[in-house]
């Protein structure tokens, strides 16, 4: 396996909005190495959400080439994309996106079930992931019985549980107060140091960007500058 996890070449994305074509990405090339911590910044409409969707295999690029962890992604079917997301991508969302009626444990088990693991094995791995994020004593709690910070920890455990190649965090601290926001950042960066997990943040927040090794600025669907 190569050491470049995210390898995008001249990626474009065009949406049809009624009569008009919207060029969300106009030819983005981006390399992210394994174990790197990168933030993608840019104003609204700069295409950073679109770029995140392409990197996370939620969407296909209109043109250009994209390899994720050595697998070519452009022309895969919906189900093949699902399988790649399941194995290689962990998502952390601003609004947590936990299943409200399920316990923390069941929420973390979810990706493993779609990976086809049997129940016992899945529960064991999910327990381990919850332990890593410091929620070993909250596994039977439902999201509404947990604080915002704890809910985001469950989401991180869910993102980690399948040992993905990258973790994509979309404004992970956006819905949290600054103290628990900082705790979440610390936890993610700790995972990077301990296990070498590749982290990609998509954010408006310059404080988050300042905590990453590299920042990619997007503007009008193009990479404007990269700073180290």
């Amino acid at each position: 396996m190569s050491d470049i996890v995210v390898n995008a070449r001249d990626v474009t994305k065009v949406y049809k909005m009624g009569e008009f074509d919207v060029h969300a990405l106009r030819g983005v090339s981006l390399d992210i190495a394994r174990s790197e911590v990168v933030s993608i910044m840019g104003p609204s409409g700069s295409g950073k959400s679109t770029l995140m969707n392409v990197i996370g295999c939620l969407d296909r690029p209109t043109d250009g080439e994209y390899w994720l962890d050595g697998e070519k992604v452009e022309n895969l079917s919906d189900d093949q994309l699902s399988s790649i997301r399941n194995r290689k991508v962990g998502f952390v969302f601003q609004s947590f996106n936990l299943l409200p009626r399920q316990t923390a444990l069941t929420n973390v088990v979810l990706p493993l079930r779609y990976a086809g693991l049997n129940n016992q094995e899945a529960q064991k791995k999910a327990m381990a992931a919850l332990e890593k994020v410091g929620l070993a004593d909250r596994v039977k709690h439902r999201p509404n019985e947990l604080s915002g910070g704890q809910q985001q920890r469950v989401a991180i455990a869910r993102a980690l549980v399948n040992d993905p190649a990258i973790i994509l965090a979309d404004e992970p601290t956006g819905a949290l107060d600054s103290k628990s926001g900082q705790e979440i950042m610390d936890l993610l960066l700790h995972m990077n140091q301990e296990q070498g997990t590749t982290l990609i943040f998509v954010t408006h927040d310059p404080r988050i960007a300042s905590m990453t090794q590299r920042t990619v600025h997007l503007k009008d669907g193009l990479v404007e500058e990269e700073e180290l």
């Binding site: 939620l58 699902s82 194995r87 299943l99 979810l110 990706p111 779609y114």
Partner: peptide
């Protein structure tokens, strides 16, 4: 809809 989106994001196929 959001639940379905999340399930797909973490790897659910159409069949699931």
């Amino acid at each position: 809809t959001r639940e379905i989106g999340l399930r797909k994001a973490v790897g659910a196929r159409k069949r699931d």
